[in-house]
Design a binder for these strands. Structure first.
Lengths: 208, 208
DNA sequence: TTAAAATCTGACCCAATGGTAAGTTTATTT
DNA sequence: AAATAAACTTACCATTGGGTCAGATTTTAA
C-alpha cells in the first residue's frame, strides 16, 4: 500500500481484478476460472489483466493472500484477560459476522483446503498451527483455573470454526432449505445468539 | 445393480472408473479433472472410459449420485422413539464415522454446494429441505415435551452437520495442525466422544 | 514541450483437452 | 463354429484457453 487518497490507476485496477477473480474462482474453481471471464467481470481486456498479473496463478495467489489478510483482521483475538465467556462470545460474533459479510472469502479458503491446501501448506504448518496451540493454551488455562468446563480446547476451536463458517460456505444450501433468497441482518443476530448460547452452554458458562 | 456374484466386466469397470473419478474430482475440481487422468487412475485408455460414460459430465453425475446414496445409507435416522439423547448420540456417531471413513464423499458434496450447488439444486430443494423439516419437528416435539433444552432445531442440525463434516472436509488442515500424517481409530473415538459430550451438554442432556 | 514511463489493446500462437469415428479384439450366445 | 454383441483401441478433430508480442495510447516527469 502506498498513497491512499486519489488511488492510482494501478491500485484501482488491481482491486477490480482481484474482486472479479474472487467471484470467478469461487464459482468455477481454480481450473474452471478463465482469465477471459475474470477480465469480462472486471470490464477489462484480457491482455490488460495479464499486464497487471503475470499469469493466472498469480491472480489466484493474490486472491488467497487478500483473503487471509481480511480474515486475520476481521477476527479478533482470544485473550486471557477477557475470561472464557466474553472471549468466546467475541470470537463467535466476529466469525459469524465475517461469514455472513464475506462468504466468498470463506469459500475460497474452504475450497483450497478441501482440495489439499496446495497453496496454503506453509500457512497451515506455521502460522495456523501456532495460532491453534496458543489459543488452546489460553483455554487450558481457564480450564485449569476452574473457569470453564474441561473440554478439549483444540476440538472446541474446530467446532467453533466449522459451525460458524458453515453459514458462509453452505449459504446456498441453507438458504434453499429455509426457502429464502438472501440472508438479512436478523439472521446474523439470530445465528450469533444461537451459537453463543449453545456453545457457552456446552462449556457450562451460561448463567441465564 | 444386477447379479452380484461373478461381477460383470461392466460393473467392475464402472466401479473402477467411479472410484478414480471421485479422487480426481476432489483433487482438481470439476473443470480441473481431465478424462485422461481419470483414465490413468483407473488404468484404462481414455476412449474406454468414454465408452462407459458418454462424457465427463456424466461421470460427475454418477459420482455425485453414488455419494448421495452412500451418505444416505450411512447416516441413520432420527426417530422420536429414541428420545433426544440416544438419537443425537447415534446421529453424531454415524456422521463422524462417515466423515473419517469416507472423506472424499463429504468433500465432493461440500465443493458442489460451495460452488453453487448447480447439480444438486433439486436434491436440496426437495429431499433435503423436507428432511430438515421432518427432523426439526422431531426435535421440537422433544422440546415441547420438556425432554431437552429449547434450542432452535434447524440451527442445531446445521451445527451437528458442520462440526462433524469438518473432520472430513478439512482433514488436511486438521492433520497439519496436529502434526500428524493420518487419522487413526482412536481419533474417531475421541472426536465422537468430544462432540457427543459437548453437544449433549449444549442441549442440557448430559447427566455425567 | 518533449522524453520516458505506464497503461492499454488486438492479433496471434500453441498446448491441452473433450469428444468422435472407425475399426479390432474378446466374450457370449445360438 | 458361426454370428452377434460387448469391450477395447488408435488416430484424429475442433475448441478452448493461457500466455506473448508488437505496437498504440495515455499519463507523468523533466
Amino acid at each position: 500500500m502506498q498513497t491512499n487518497q486519489p488511488k492510482s490507476i494501478r491500485e484501482k485496477s488491481l482491486k477490480t481484478i482481484l474482486f472479479a477473480a474472487q467471484e470467478e474462482f469461487v464459482l468455477q474453481g481454480y481450473k474452471g476460472a478463465t482469465v477471459q471471464s475474470i477480465a469480462d467481470k472486471a470490464k477489462l481486456p484480457k491482455a490488460n489483466v495479464l499486464y497487471y498479473f503475470k499469469n493466472k496463478e498469480n491472480i489466484y495467489h493474490a486472491v488467497l493472500e487478500h483473503t487471509l489478510d481480511m480474515w486475520d483482521k476481521g477476527i479478533g483475538d482470544i485473550i486471557p484477560e477477557d475470561g472464557p465467556k466474553l472471549a468466546i462470545e467475541k470470537f463467535i460474533r466476529a466469525k459469524v459476522t465475517m461469514s455472513f459479510k464475506h462468504p466468498q472469502a470463506s469459500k475460497i479458503y474452504a475450497m483450497e483446503i478441501i482440495q489439499g491446501a496446495q497453496h496454503l501448506k506453509d500457512f497451515t504448518r506455521t502460522y495456523l498451527r501456532q495460532w491453534v496451540r496458543d489459543k488452546a493454551k489460553v483455554f487450558q488455562h481457564w480450564i485449569d483455573n476452574g473457569e470453564m468446563k474441561d473440554v478439549d480446547p483444540v476440538n472446541l476451536i474446530f467446532l467453533i470454526w466449522s459451525s460458524t463458517q458453515h453459514y458462509a460456505d453452505f449459504d446456498n444450501q441453507i438458504l434453499t432449505i429455509m426457502n429464502r433468497a438472501d440472508y438479512e441482518q436478523d439472521d446474523i443476530n439470530h445465528v450469533t445468539r444461537f451459537l453463543t448460547d449453545f456453545i457457552l452452554t456446552g462449556c457450562e458458562l451460561n448463567n441465564d
